[in-house]
Each structure stands twice: as structure tokens, then as C-alpha cells.
Amino acid sequence: MNDGLTRKKFGRVALNGAGIVVFLFAVFPVYWMVATAFKPNDQIFTTRFNPIPSPPSLDHISRVFTKGVAGHSIWQYLLNSAIVAVVTVVIGAVFALLAATAVARFRFRFRTSFLILLLIVQMVPAEALLISLFTMVKRLGMYDQLIGLVVINVGLTLPFSVWMLRTFVAAVPKELEEASWIDGASRFTTFWRVLFPLVAPGLVATSIFSFITTWNEFAYALTLINDQGKYTMPVALQFFVGQRSTDWGGIMAASTLMTIPVLIFFLLVQRRMVSGLVAGAVKG
């Protein structure tokens, strides 16, 4: 008994230790980015190993906030990025969930073709589609508008989301749905009350993926938008790269700022995934 308890305790310590190692590996480069944002220039362009900004400087951070980027406040770019990313995630999640249910729950003509088509879309190098897709969206009348970016990002993230969600929908025991039908629930109620809660963790994972992909998307954000005030953060970031020198401090400060909203988004949605909501839903 005592022996078992010690072993259990030891196991817990080992697990937490492993967790800390993973955390450090993941965070160290991020720390370096943040630290650089606080380093004065002569500490960035040094040839000595220099892990801690000493003394730390707010030069880069305050410059990014007070001077803005390319004539607009940094908030403007963050806002544009947030609009595009959030709308993309919401639309993308709905579309993907519907399509995933179709391919996981029904057998119909072109089902396999549809799945493979989605994969092919992922395989093609982005550069090869850039100009055609750009022309396409322009013809739809969405040039120089954030909605155009939303449409493109939905298109770019949908294949992944459908493939991913498909496995989650398929894993939900069919019997649960049938039970619900027998109880007289409509298709929609069944979907909403039975399927949705069980697929929620998968939905969270794909939403995070879509959010980050959209948040960092650069090529279309650059080409499709012309109005300086509608650029997103990745484009703003490029303004720190000059013809003849690059403002690394500024880039790192802006990159740090850019990372924060993703973490906020994650904290907002992660509860659905980490908590043990699933078990309850099955019983209910």
C-alpha cells in the first residue's frame, strides 16, 4: 500500500517534470523573441551570448505603439487581423462541421472524390495558386475588402478542417444518434444536442488551427488589399524590413504583440477541450 502510494507520488513528480521540460522547450524561443523586443539595439546586434536584456529598454515597444506602422496605429492592424480571423473561424467551423457530418455519416456519390479533392487543394504550393485565386476573388468584387480575405482564408483552411472533423464525427457512436431519433428528436436537435457536444474538442482544435493560419496569412493579405488602413498584422510586420536594413527590435516587439491575441483566443476556447465536459454530455 505504502509502496503503491510512493510510486504514484513518484509518477506524478515525473509527469510534472516532463511537463516542465516540454514547457521550457516550447517557450525558450518565444522568450527570446520577447527578450529581444526589450533589448536596446546594441544588445540585439551583438556577437556575444546575451540572454537577458540589461538594462531592459522600452524603445521598441513604445515606438511600435506611439509611431505605429506605415502611418497607421498598430491597433488598426490588430483589429483588421482580428476581424478577419474571427469571422473566418466562425464561418469555417460551421461549413466544415456540416461537410464533415456529410462525409462521415452518409455514403453518397462523389464522396471519395470530394475528400481527395480537398487534399489536393492542400498539396498545391501556395505560390502556384496565388495569382489565379487573387484574380478570382477580385472578379467576385471583393478586391480591397476584408471580406475577400475571409473568403480566401475559409477556402484555405476548410480542407484541413473537414478532414480533421470527419474523424471526430465518425468516432461518435451512431447508437447515440439513433437513440435520440427514437426519442422523436428532429435531425437538427440530434445534431445540436448529441453530435455537437461530442465533436466540440475537435472543433476547438480545428478552430485554433484556422485562427492561427488566418492570423499569419500573408500573401493574400498583401496582394488583395491596397488601402493601407486595411492591411493585417503580417503585412504591417513587413514594413520593418527596409531596403537596406531591418529593424529587428521593431519586428520582435510587433511579433510579441501579435502572439498575445492568439493566446487570448486560445484561453477563451480551450475550456471546451480541457475540461471533462464530454463524459457528461454522453450521459445526458
Binding site: A70, I131, Y143, T223, N226, D227, Q238, F239, V241
Partner: peptide, 29 residues
Amino acid sequence: VQYIPWPDAQKKWTAALAGGEGPDVTEFG
């Protein structure tokens, strides 16, 4: 006046040419 980031000017010109929404006058290397 619209400012274009240096490293990406090529992409922007390419898109401008393909999409017909280019500048009237532009700076060039």
C-alpha cells in the same frame, strides 16, 4: 500615396498587373 513593403514589392506589382488594379506612378529599383 501608398507605401509598399520593400521585400514584397515584386508580389504587389505582379498582382497589380494580373488584377489590373495597379498604381499610376511607382517607385522602382
